[in-house]
Design a protein around this nucleic acid. Sequence first.
DNA 1: GAAGGTGATGGCAGCAACTGACATCAAGGG
DNA 2: CCCTTGATGTCAGTTGCTGCCATCACCTTC
Lengths: 205, 205
Amino acid sequence: MGRWEPNARGRLEEAAMNLFQERGYDRTTVEEIAARAGLTERTFFRYFADKKEVLFGGAGELRRLITSTITDAPEETSPLEAVAAALDATAPVFKERRDYARARQGLIVAHAELRERELIKLADLASAAADALRGRGVTEPAASLTAEAGIAVFKVAFERWVEDPKSQDLSQHLRSTLDELRAVTASTGTANPPQPVKRAKAPRR
Amino acid sequence: MGRWEPNARGRLEEAAMNLFQERGYDRTTVEEIAARAGLTERTFFRYFADKKEVLFGGAGELRRLITSTITDAPEETSPLEAVAAALDATAPVFKERRDYARARQGLIVAHAELRERELIKLADLASAAADALRGRGVTEPAASLTAEAGIAVFKVAFERWVEDPKSQDLSQHLRSTLDELRAVTASTGTANPPQPVKRAKAPRR
DNA sequence: GAAGGTGATGGCAGCAACTGACATCAAGGG
DNA sequence: CCCTTGATGTCAGTTGCTGCCATCACCTTC
């Protein structure tokens, strides 16, 4: 297959992660990553579309997990429950690599460019979930909304999980956050006329 | 103030938008933008952190609008309602520039880098909304979740508004989408006492 | 009204991310 | 043993972006 050692992609990912932690993300050059992996810069860009992408290798796996979980859910499962089950299905992936996930998240929150990439990956997961819901017959406004709401739950729950000093399970965070979403949306809902809110004055920031 | 013509920032934004539509985003160079605005590349980067940012000049205004609307909402207003009012407060901003908003959105959906930027701007709005909610005494899991859910509503509603051939108001889209969110989250819960859900459907489309 | 300060702009050099075109090498098949 | 194939290397070039310093317009101040 390859020319030299196998698993070039994995070597690049590992070299990148190590270098990012040693010198920081932006003081690490792609050439250095490639060199540590025993490859060249050009080869790096054959495996990853750009420098950021080397930190998001698992996105495809998550997408498949979510899609299949929603698709395979029992027919009577409600859309939101199906999405919740899909998010829960991803929990083990993170549980096994909690340290890696933490280190990675530390990098992401510290670099706006990486946060952007993370957000588009999450949006992609939402899109995949919406597709899967439509495959179950959920009609359009509801499908996208349920998927987006699910991702919102995931974002909040994941953040709390990473910050959680005691290793409470991600699944538990997901469940309680979902309950919180239900509570927050269930309250004084007027399905009909949301009266125009009178704003006081110009933003005095 | 300036050296020559005033409003360098505005000239750069306009030149950029025009060039993006003429040649496309990635076949337009920053040097060309600056030249059309009668400036140099170096000056462009004094006004905008990077090439993408020239399309997101209004973000600060939106942020202030959302923050002040939530802060100034009557005390008895529920968190979700306050967020909904804040989103609604942004509608006029888009209404006045519907054509610009459409053209801009066309560029954004066509370029992943711009979608990333848009997502982080939305996340920033969510963060601002969460801050404002906390300022009203909303405790933490709820504040972030309500803000994120609100942004999810905004994303879906805005998308539908842009695609809407007949110019239905963004406010209307926001309202119906919020109702849809309530409907979708209200159904068969887990920990919560699931109340029998009888809900009129939001406008089906 | 001449001197000096200030803020915006230009000019230039340079780095690093990324790309296209082409050469080269390892491995397997016929 | 040659030839195909896929992964890798090499090289040149573009572009986004930054640091540093000079320059210019405008304003203040004496």
